[in-house]
Write a protein that binds this DNA or RNA. Structure first.
Length: 508
DNA sequence: CTAGGGTTAG
């Protein structure tokens, strides 16, 4: 059989008989190879650039840009977006705004590739964090000029950057309008970004409005946005528990099914506002809706009930919780112990400590601070001393609160000697007493004729940048009349740090 | 896959 020459069969696409054979330079592996080589070259010269800080202004391009162009030219391929991204990342690391500007212009006017959106987003984010919000906004509007179709990703990014600052937030409406003209489809995520920002600047009312707009626009209820709103409740300063409950009820009416975290956040807010009863209601609501309350929820509600001093309900709920099979942990016990201490049932509280430790929950510094607070309040310093010894035996280190509680206990009873020993210890640990306590100590010392000691104490504390209150200064001044020999020199050392602090304030 | 979230403070 005579084989027809393939060339005449006309399969021009087989390499052997192609009219114009593939240039070996046009295959993709070769292109990749060249790109890698060019990139390597660029990276090496970047190293040079950084070590010698060369700035070769050929054809008006910054050094790195001209290196990029040259190295790609040397391999006869067009610079890739990847190469530019490498360049941009480098320039942002050195905050080289000038060169970034050049590179962007170059990409816009001299390149033809479609710039990947993530590259521009990287720069928008960079501008945002460098407090160059206007640059970020300008770049956003300029995205299409880089032959890139902006998506909601860029929009969300820009908005979240603007939302970091109250002033910039005002630009958001205009950007939303203009983004429509840029054919960006706003989506749920955009609203969520806005809601988050509004919650952060404590405008839940606006956040709720947006939530409602979303529903009107047919987006359906955004569960995440609801959670966001609930979780931000605790940060709202002037929101009453009544208002929060209305918001909660409205969202539930819209079909919001809270999860355990939403319930916990809501309960936390109510307890913080001092409405333990409402918190308990939410806990019950939770059960009705088939969400199992866990030990954390119970602990918060219990602490709310303690705050309301409803000790009958406290015992009731604690028992109920045990019946439900929940195991109290140290947090729960601390709340319960606090409840007992508030009723001055200190012995009972100590029994609880013993039994909880038998059950494997070790007491901690909070437990002891609670107990110490109670015994100091009752004025039983001996019991306080016993407790401190106990703490040491158990290896529980005192914290700032421990010292403050003890100090207040001693000062209330006029035990200035022991108070001073504590103060010394605090000074070593850089713990500051409450101003009023400190002033009280100075006052009591002066009354007992311990003027010199008081002055010494004051000097030591001021040196550790502690600021005594007006009362301490006043007391010292009033008592200094008979002891003028101290005042000249010692007051200088006392007052000078104060003055330098003041001048620092006026400078800034 | 599950943790997260929680306690005192004159």
């Amino acid at each position: 059989m005579v084989r027809k020459p393939l060339s005449k069969a006309g399969n021009k696409f087989l390499r052997k008989f192609r009219k114009w054979p593939h240039s070996p330079y046009k295959t993709s592996w070769h292109h990749n190879f060249c790109e890698n080589q060019a990139m390597q070259f660029l990276k090496n010269s970047n190293f040079q650039f950084q070590s010698f800080n060369l700035y070769n202004k050929n054809n008006n391009n910054p050094f790195l840009l001209s290196t990029l162009l040259n190295s790609f030219k040397a391999y006869s391929i067009d610079p890739t977006p990847k190469a530019y991204f490498f360049l941009i990342k480098n320039l942002t690391q050195n905050s080289n705004f000038q060169d970034i500007f050049h590179v962007l212009n170059h990409i816009e006017h001299n390149e033809k590739f479609e710039t990947p959106e993530f590259m521009l987003m990287y720069l928008i984010r960079f501008y945002g964090f460098a407090d160059r919000v206007q640059d970020a906004v300008d770049l956003f509007y300029r995205i299409p000029r880089f032959r890139c179709t902006p998506t909601v990703c860029s929009l969300n990014l820009l908005i979240s950057l603007l939302c970091r600052n109250r002033e910039c937030l005002k630009m958001v409406p205009e950007i939303l309008l203009k983004s429509r003209r840029m054919n960006i489809r706003v989506e749920e995520s955009t609203f969520r970004v806005l809601i988050k920002a509004l919650c952060r600047i404590k405008r839940v009312d606006y956040a709720l409005k947006i939530l409602n707009f979303m529903i009107e626009d047919g987006y359906g209820l955004d569960v995440k946005a609801c959670s966001l709103i609930v979780s931000s409740l605790c940060e709202q300063i002037d929101l009453s528990s009544v208002e929060a409950l209305v918001i909660w009820r409205d969202m539930r009416k819209l079909g919001f099914c809270p999860d355990i975290m939403d319930y916990t956040n809501m309960i936390k807010f109510l307890v913080k506002q001092g409405s333990g009863k409402d918190a308990l209601n939410i806990l019950n609501q939770m059960k009705e809706n088939g969400v199992k309350a866990d030990i954390v929820c119970y602990t918060i509600v219990l602490s709310g009930i303690v705050a309301e001093r409803d000790y009958v309900k406290l015992d009731e709920l604690f028992d109920k919780m045990i019946v439900f099979g929940l195991v109290p942990n140290i947090y729960t016990y601390n709340v319960y112990i606090n409840g007992l201490c508030k009723q001055n049932k200190i012995d009972e509280a100590r029994e609880i400590v013993a039994s909880m430790e038998e059950l494997g929950s070790k007491s901690n510094v909070v437990t002891y601070n609670t107990l110490l607070g109670a015994v100091c309040f009752a004025g039983d310093l001996n019991k306080a001393r016993v407790l401190v010894k106990e703490m040491r035996l158990k290896g529980i280190g005192p914290n700032l609160h421990t010292y403050r509680i003890m100090l207040d206990g001693f000062v209330r009873k006029g035990e200035i000697g022991e108070a001073c020993i504590l103060l010394e210890e605090m000074l070593e640990k850089c713990f500051h007493p409450r101003t009023s306590t400190f002033d009280d100590i100075i006052f009591q010392m002066c009354q007992k004729g311990m003027f010199t000691e008081a002055l010494g104490l004051m000097t030591k504390f001021v040196a550790k940048s502690f600021a005594p209150g007006a009362r301490a200064w006043e007391t010292l001044l009033l008592n200094s009349g008979s002891e003028l020999q101290y005042s000249e020199t010692t007051y200088d050392t006392l007052i000078i740090p104060e003055i330098t602090q003041l001048s620092k304030l006026t400078e800034s």
